[in-house]
Design a protein around this nucleic acid. Sequence first.
DNA 1: CGATTTCTGATGTACGTAAATCAGAAATTT
DNA 2: AAATTTCTGATTTACGTACATCAGAAATCG
Lengths: 341, 341
Amino acid sequence: MRPTVHDIAAAAGVSLATVDRVLNQRPGVRLVTREKVEEAIRQIGYIRDVAAANLAKGRVYPLVFIVPTGDNSFMHGLRSEVHHATLRASIERTDIRIVEVPAFDVPALVAALDALQGQDIAGVALVATDAPEVRAAVDRLVSERIPVVTLVSDLTDSTRHHYAGIDNIAAGRTAARLLGRFLGGREGDLTVLAGSMLVRDHRERLQGFSAVMAAEFPKLRLLPVLEGRDDPERTKSLVSKALSENKDIIGIYSLGAGNRGLIAALKAVRPERELTVVVHELTQHTRVALVDGTIDAVLNQDAGHEVRSAVRVMKATADGQAVIADQERIRLDIFLKDNLP
Amino acid sequence: MRPTVHDIAAAAGVSLATVDRVLNQRPGVRLVTREKVEEAIRQIGYIRDVAAANLAKGRVYPLVFIVPTGDNSFMHGLRSEVHHATLRASIERTDIRIVEVPAFDVPALVAALDALQGQDIAGVALVATDAPEVRAAVDRLVSERIPVVTLVSDLTDSTRHHYAGIDNIAAGRTAARLLGRFLGGREGDLTVLAGSMLVRDHRERLQGFSAVMAAEFPKLRLLPVLEGRDDPERTKSLVSKALSENKDIIGIYSLGAGNRGLIAALKAVRPERELTVVVHELTQHTRVALVDGTIDAVLNQDAGHEVRSAVRVMKATADGQAVIADQERIRLDIFLKDNLP
DNA sequence: CGATTTCTGATGTACGTAAATCAGAAATTT
DNA sequence: AAATTTCTGATTTACGTACATCAGAAATCG
């Protein structure tokens, strides 16, 4: 049987109350006694039964998810996953609040973060826009001992406790190698389509992509990045224009959202133009396009995993508990038409 | 506040004891009363607090993992992950026993399964060798109401509750497309290296691989499968022989374990022979080979995820609880040299 | 050394559920 | 209608921890 507080008390020769004071860092214990108890805890290898503790405390975890508005499928999916998490609220003892903030809007995000100060909150998860003001606001929350997790897009040099998202540099590099190898030594131009260079995940993907392209696929030339702002309409017109003006384009890497527009533009020039296309985010639209051959590979991050991971990490951090690091690593999914879930 | 058994009792106008009898399906409740209670449960939306229930029951889950012996890295890693799970035993209320059985040995596996009958066990996870005798033994356990989960390799037509592993047909198809596209229209022979056609995962990978190759890459010819029995030494000699006898081999798909031997054979013919190679299972050896360019892609299943998922599913099944299906889907990881974890 | 302050022990209640006991009510049988 | 049998209610203890209260012991101070 696993040891309990009673066993500690017996082993240390003190009362239950004293053990409790030591365990919960309450005052009223002499240093020598405290050390005696801590020694006993180590000796018998006591591990707190979190379930029982939470039951006794009547613990609930008020969590806040700050997610961008925007009508692209990925953010829609993310919001839907957070919503799913709220459905598990009672069984997971969470109380999740969703705060929506306009995409790429730094002041609005800062305001949302600052509004949380002083509130009784067990954790905050946010899709970060990578700006110093946001970092400062996050750091303020952290200094108030509120667990903060960045979701999908990380925040440079901030003190956030955890990042629940993929390694975007690796994602960009992977996209480059896939495109490069799929193009099999051909020569031509490549178009890169991004949402906005204001978010770190997009910058990092581009960085990884450019690095591998430059180093290993010299025959492929990168054209200036098109910024579609993750908006399908805008994306569509940008791509259509680029394709009609440049007949040397043989590949496209879309590292942001808004792929509905990209796909529409591609369909318009098929089958005359043969293009190798790698995009991010598996959505209804990209899935169909992958199956019908309009695009060749989809890189994906599983929003459901990210949300569940964020919840686990915030809870554990709030309790000062360790997490299974390997379990919380968000993996880059690579989908070809053959391994769709 | 979320409703408790007390609320049910009040709502149904019965006592706590009666509610308890209904909830735990104990005798001693008249049909009309039982229905009244069940109606009240629905009405107020009661959800059992599993943590509190487990605490009260002093529940522990005695679990058994049956894993093959064998000195290839993958099985080694799998055993190590199960071992890791035992380290979390006390906090997860599990009591995990590991049973080792010689690989591909049907009678031994059946004996190990039958030995569990009648024992007080909350769940069994096994790496299945796909034989009717094994299926029958599994079905016997299932009929004793013991949760059974297949791990890594599934069992055809059995009544096992869950399969914690990847979709191997999809894996084979994916390997085919990667190899096919990486070879970019070239013509030549392909060697497929398997462990044993006795295990379903290997058969399925081959099936998926062959299907896509035949349908979409007619210029690539499949040679007869080499069976390396997941043994590095045997694998090495098989591959060396094949490469020296056939100069038209331009690609290799290794769908089993024992890749140490494959890599050794490849190093011996490099850099004269240029081969595109896709293998399964990310290990110390395949990782290095991927980085140094000896192999081009690694398909992987995360043994840690599989083991943790198996534990979650067995516990949930034992409790008659639902699982988050999406969370328990084991994904096929595709690693290029750029997205190694 | 007595008076105060600080520490420690003993004890009880609570969290939500499981499980047991016993008495009394209702239904069924004789 | 009496005697059973079958249900139901009331109550209690337990799981492992948190937290509060109060009394008594030990340490510190004047």
